[in-house]
Amino acid sequence: MKDILYIEDSPELVLMVKETLKPHHVHHCSTLKDAETTLQQKSFDLILLDLSLPDGDGLRYLAAKISDQSNGLNKTPLFVLTGQSEISSKVMAFAIGVDDYIIKPFHHAELKARVEAKLRKGTEQATEESFLQLGNVRLDMAKQKVTVHTGTSSEDLTLTRLEFKMLTKFMKSPDRVFSRELFIETIWSDANVTDRTVDTHIAHLRKKIGPATIKIETVTGEGYRLKVIEGSL
C-alpha cells in the first residue's frame, strides 16, 4: 500500500479518487497552502494535482517545487488531473517535469491503471538501486552486505561500517579517483582523522576484497580508484 497526496478542491472528485485507488492511502489537501504544510511533514509515493485551485496556479506551484532540489519532490511521481485541455498547458506541464497529464472527466479504470503502472515502476527502480553489482561483487545497501561470487559458490565479506561506505563510493563510480580529503569529508565527517587513517582503511579493504574481480589502485599524488580486473566481466 502506497501513500498518495491528492491536491484537489472538489470533495466529490476526492471521494471518487480515494475509492478508485484503494487499497492505497490517498491523503487530501484542498489548497496549495495545505499541500505545502503536508509536504513538509511527510513524503509521498505519488502526487496527484489539479491545476485550478482556490489559492493559486498548480503549474506555477509545480515549477517552483520541482526546481528546488532540496525538497526531494523532483524524485516523486507527479500526475496532473485537470479540466485544462489546452496544448499549451500540457506542454508546459511536461516541460516542468510531470509524469502524466490526465484530463477531466476521466475513466476510473484508466486512472487506476496509470497510477498502478507508475507505482510499480517506481518500486522496481528502487529495488534495482538498492543493489550494486561490479565484477563478481554484489553489494546490498539495505542489508549492508557484500557478497563475492566465485563460480558456483559465494562468500559474504565482513566489512566494518566505514569500509562498507568506502566500497559503496568506489562501486558507484568505478574508475573515478577519490582523494583522501574527499574520504575524510564524506566518510568521517567531523572526526579528527589524517591521511594515514584513510590509507589504513584502504589497506584493510583491499585485503578483504582479495577474492573479488575488482581492485583498488593507488593513483600517486591523487588518491585511489576502483578498477574491474580485465577479462572478469
Rank of each mutant, 00 (worst) to 15 (best):
L132N: 03
D9A: 07
T147M: 03
V193I: 00
A95D: 07
V177H: 06
D156W: 04
Q133D: 14
T168V: 06
Q84P: 10
G83V: 14
T200Q: 03
I66Q: 03
S153G: 05
L162S: 05
S88A: 02
M171G: 08
K90H: 14
Y6R: 00
T200G: 02
L81F: 09
Y6Q: 01
K65H: 10
E163D: 11
T200A: 04
V26I: 09
R206C: 04
K18E: 10
K208W: 11
H204S: 13
T152C: 03
L13Y: 11
L157G: 11
H107F: 12
R225A: 05
I102T: 05
K112R: 13
F94M: 05
V228D: 12
V98F: 09
E155S: 05
L134W: 10
P211C: 03
I187H: 02
L73H: 05
G151Y: 08
R196Y: 04
I7N: 03
S179F: 12
T160R: 01
P211I: 01
V198A: 06
V177M: 06
G221W: 10
A63I: 01
D45A: 14
P174E: 14
D199R: 01
G56D: 01
I214V: 11
V14S: 09
P23N: 05
K169S: 15
M16T: 07
T194C: 03
L159N: 13
S52Y: 15
V177T: 10
T76R: 03
T186D: 15
A113Q: 11
R180V: 00
T218S: 08
D100T: 07
I87V: 11
L49E: 14
H201R: 01
E129P: 13
E155F: 01
P77K: 06
I102Q: 01
V193S: 03
T31G: 04
T76V: 06
D190Y: 09
Q144I: 06
C29F: 08
R60T: 08
V148I: 04
D199Q: 04
D9V: 11
G83Y: 15
P11H: 07
L119N: 00
M141S: 12
S67V: 00
Q40P: 15
Q69L: 08
D140N: 11
E86P: 11
R196P: 00
R176P: 14
